[in-house]
């Protein structure tokens, strides 16, 4: 069998030479920049001259100047951005999961025109985020927006609302647009889970005369839950790094700034690469931690099932 092992060795060598280009590019565009960002977070780097930097330890994160706390962890606006990000993530994903379920159940039913409805639902997903932000920005315009007009015609509000400018409402506008844009993704993933369910359980339940609502909570929900959780985790990873929508829709105000917005503002607008990199590093750590916990919890569950 020596010929076969020689062949195997040749194939393993081929594997590495096939992998090399992809690995080099990935190291160049992902690995190296990440390492440099973490390094910059411990320096006083400025955007105007990145070659001349001084190592300053943890001062970007937390430091004491003249008896006053300074640095990222002492910055109220940073914590505001953290709170905004968490609030956005939890509320938008809860709404998207619920509405995604509704849409998936509708698309899973047989009815006339289902293909058309499925196509219509995909449209928000196909529209670039910047374009959706602008489209909704126009619809939510305080003076000429159609949403205010509609709500006033229906007598639901008495005066126009400044959806994207009012600090108390702007975050809800962001959530609304995100729900509009991302519910299709959720619905399609949940639908894929629904379509893998065995049909005979439903036949049995139908023959036994179990009510459809009971069937949903006792059969459908437990069976598709793993697929839903995967979709929720993917969405959560995406929601925590939100940038485009908030940047364009509410034009960079502190009331809606996310962690990504805060980091880019420090980095580009204030040229404080050290401080911005510290914020980026913290966001990366939060997401990494969340991913590890999600994988760990998922694995444990899989172990119990088998």
């Amino acid at each position: 069998m020596s010929g076969r092992s020689a062949l195997t060795r040749a194939r393993v060598r081929a594997a590495w030479s096939f992998l090399a280009p992809m690995l080099i590019v990935l190291a160049l565009v992902a690995g190296w920049p990440l390492v440099r960002t973490i390094y910059f977070s411990f320096t006083n780097a400025n955007l105007s001259d990145l070659s001349n930097v001084k190592f300053i330890g943890f001062e970007n994160y937390l430091a004491v100047y003249d008896g006053e706390w300074a640095g990222l962890l002492a910055d109220g606006y940073w914590w505001r951005a953290v709170a905004n990000t968490i609030r956005f993530t939890i509320v938008s994903i809860a709404l998207e999961t619920f509405l995604g379920f509704v849409v998936a159940l509708v698309l899973n039913a047989e009815f006339y025109g289902r293909g058309l409805v499925r196509a219509a639902v995909l449209i928000p997903w196909a529209i670039p985020t910047i374009v959706s932000a602008k489209m909704w920005g126009w619809m939510l315009h305080d003076q000429f927006g159609i949403i205010n007009d509609l709500l006033m015609r229906l007598d639901l509000i008495s005066a126009p609302i400044a959806w994207t400018a009012d600090p108390n409402i702007a975050m809800w506008a962001v959530i609304l647009v995100d729900v509009w844009k991302t519910t299709p993704f959720m619905a399609l993933l949940i639908l894929a889970g629904l379509q893998m369910l065995p049909g005979d359980i439903y036949e049995a339940a139908y023959i036994d005369g179990v009510s459809p609502i009971r069937v949903f909570f006792k059969v459908t929900l437990p069976l598709v839950w793993p697929a839903v959780m995967v979709a929720v985790i993917f969405r959560a990873l995406d929601a925590m790094r939100i940038f485009d929508l908030i940047y364009v829709l509410t034009s960079n105000t502190r009331e809606t700034a996310s962690m990504s917005i805060y980091a880019r503002q420090q980095l580009v607008d204030f040229q404080e690469v050290g401080m911005g990199s510290a914020a980026s590093t913290l966001l990366f750590l939060v997401i990494a931690l969340f991913t590890i916990i999600a994988i760990f919890v998922g694995k444990v569950k899989l172990g119990q099932e088998s």
Partner: peptide, 26 residues
């Protein structure tokens, strides 16, 4: 391990590589 590494990169938030990428591009 390689497959997991590739998957891990898709979790990177874009801002996490922003300053490093800026330096690289310059």
């Amino acid at each position: 391990v390689l497959l997991l590494t590739v998957l891990a990169v898709s979790m990177f938030p874009q801002v996490a590589v922003l300053s490093g990428m800026f330096e690289l591009i310059r």
